[in-house]
Design a protein around this nucleic acid. Structure first.
Lengths: 283, 283
DNA sequence: TATTATTACGTTAGGCGTAAAGATT
DNA sequence: AATCTTTACGCCTAACGTAATAATA
């Protein structure tokens, strides 16, 4: 039977051209490689080398053997990787979400219901989330719309309402509510990593510019020190203190008031436990 | 790095269900398999088994690992086979011929010009011979026609003329020559393994029946003891004695007088040496 | 002389089997 | 009691490295 270690030595010899260099590269002695090459010829049952008195080279069959060896080693690596990834997938719940806020509730809930599982999450476009769900690349999707698919459950579990925050001195500060068309044209501070909200704002307010801040501290500082309007939502508890000095004005458009739906395969309806868990918390 | 022997033990365990039976099947001790399974888990870096106090079974990852192991072992077998077959092909000249007679000259000539090579030959349809030549499945083709292909040489080297042999008492015995249409309807003794001649006779003499003899002794006996006509050719020296009592009458149709062409890849024109060799012999 | 492949040789580590233990049916 | 897995233990092979050999550039 073939020995993958021996094949690796063969490949290294093919790469380096001499047994000595191959030995050095592999941190083994020359005699070991000599013996391995002899043993490989026994295993294959054919001559693989053209030998001179103090030189050795691959013959045509040897070149063929190296080609096969490379394929086989690569296949072995792939096999290892596939098994490891399969095992990982058994111990990982992967969540793809359209926005960060639902993750603040879902991730802790998952951890508590499935303490032995690794929870992986990422923000994605709605279309990418649906692909992930259908391909099995994620077990749980979080969408701002109710998608009905055969063999998949879609469960509403959380609502988020967008508001704007402006300093008390701002033109809009007197309003009790606004619409996207009323605020279209104003420039807004915006955080990065806010999922579908980013795209939605650009669609609903095509005349506005958005000053996207990747760094939380930069964003916070700009909130304090500038009069630029920004957004918040009913779920952004973290920002209550920071925004206390500003006026919060809800946006009435239906697009600014979304219900999040959790989507998962019907076989995975164990996740409904987690939904209950979250709904209990929010009550 | 994965060890194919260990993977084989894993597969055997998957097949048998217990370590003991796997050990017995592989003619090794149970502790060895236990250790191997432990070592496999180390190599993969994941748990492969669900262990009880005195029972062990594959878990989901283990099943996946077995699947991968089977693929890998199969790939290893294939790699071995491919290298061996490649080596064999380097030491084998494969000849595909449309008829046996040319092989009587070509095979000994090849052996004498290439004493270190194995010569393999088979009778095939003309279309199959051309496929073999083009695919590289054979290095030398022998055809009854001159086929001109780019990058291939086609060289005439031998002629064969078909005659019929009838007892002196036969109706046809007085003729000095015959045509297929004249002998169409007579039933003929025929040997098997005569290549394209078989098909040709059936096409040229659609009203005749052919009593095909697979066994040489049966055929010879029928020649001696029956008055059924048979065929011979100028190359069938072996049958001169046996047919001495019969009258040999040449068939004049062009289809019964063929020139054999050797076809080979232009890169292999070393075979022309062999052609000279044969032509020298026939002179 | 420096480099290379191969052979010879002594050592050692790792793999195997036997035996025993622990546990289940 | 019989079967099965795992651990313990001792042996022994087989693989490795060092050193020596032979040959080349």
């Amino acid at each position: 039977m073939l020995d993958l270690n021996e094949l690796e030595q063969l490949i290294t010899f093919a790469d380096t051209g001499t047994l000595s260099m191959a030995a050095e590269k592999l941190h083994i002695s020359q005699p070991t490689i000599t013996r391995t090459m002899q043993h490989l010829e026994e295993t294959f049952g054919v001559s693989l080398f053209a030998r001179g008195k103090n030189k050795i080279a691959l013959n045509d069959t040897g070149i063929k053997a190296v080609e096969q060896a490379k394929q086989l080693l690569s296949a072995a690596e792939d096999a290892l990787k596939r098994v490891r990834e399969f095992d990982k997938s058994l111990h990982t719940i992967t969540v793809s979400s359209c926005a960060p806020a639902p993750l603040w509730y879902v991730l802790p809930a998952l951890s508590s219901v499935y303490p032995d599982m690794t929870i992986a999450s990422s923000l994605k476009e709605i279309s990418a989330i649906l692909e992930d769900i259908c391909s099995g690349a994620c077990q749980l999707g979080i969408l701002p719309i109710d998608v009905k698919l055969d063999n998949y459950l879609s469960i509403p579990f959380l609502e988020e309402s967008l508001s704007i925050c402006v300093p008390a001195s701002h033109n809009l500060a007197g309003k009790s509510s606004v619409t996207f068309s009323e605020i279209n044209g104003f420039n807004f501070l915006l955080r990065s990593e806010i999922g579908f909200w980013d795209e939605m704002c650009r669609v609903q307010m095509p005349s506005s510019k958005f000053l996207v801040q990747t760094d939380k501290f930069a964003f916070d500082e700009l909130i304090r020190e500038s009069s630029l309007p920004c957004f918040t939502t009913n779920l952004a508890d973290d920002y209550k203190n920071l925004l206390a000095d500003r006026v919060t004005i809800p946006i009435t458009d239906p697009e600014a008031n979304v219900t999040y739906f959790m989507i998962c395969h019907s076989d995975d309806k164990a996740y409904t436990d987690m939904i209950n868990h979250i709904q209990r918390r929010l009550r």
